[in-house]
Amino acid sequence: MIGLLKSMATTMKHALDGNTFTVEYPETTPDVSPRFRGVHKFSQERCIWCRQCENVCPNDTIQIVTDDQRNGEQYNLHIGQCIYCRLCEEVCPVDAIILTQNFEFTGDTKDDLVYNKEQLKAVPWYKDIDPLESREPDRGSWIGEGEGAVDYQ
């Protein structure tokens, strides 16, 4: 019986203290970590069309189309298929593709979530956080001096 009363006291304490741990979402947005991985943003000015991101992507989310002179024509990214592993950002030698903190995006169909490069360029910064300023992408694992062949080319 004492256990029951203790249980009831515990919940009543929570009811009376008035604290809530949920927030009113669109008005109060959650703080996201500077390292948070959201929708990608693409910079055509920086991109050198090296295709490393396309190669490293574990589930073929990125599709790059180039002409026969290896000039970039299309950069498509299926945001609905992405698993947000951040390997594309890590591998990119020129920071042309980065994952913003933005997690708010919708689409009526799966096709709506296939972003072309114009859409990727237009992805807004979340709360004006520029991930490149707030975090320093870890390149250590890519620029190692190991004896392994440098591939991804």
């Binding site: 970590s33 390292r35 948070f36 947000y84 592993c85 975090r135 250590g140 694992s141």
Partner: peptide
């Protein structure tokens, strides 16, 4: 999330170390 950048699907480990 502060440590790895994601709430569940961390992808934090790398062979021979960690990402951050």
């Amino acid at each position: 999330e502060d440590l790895t950048g994601q709430r569940m699907m961390y992808n934090y480990f790398r062979l021979g170390g960690v990402a951050w």
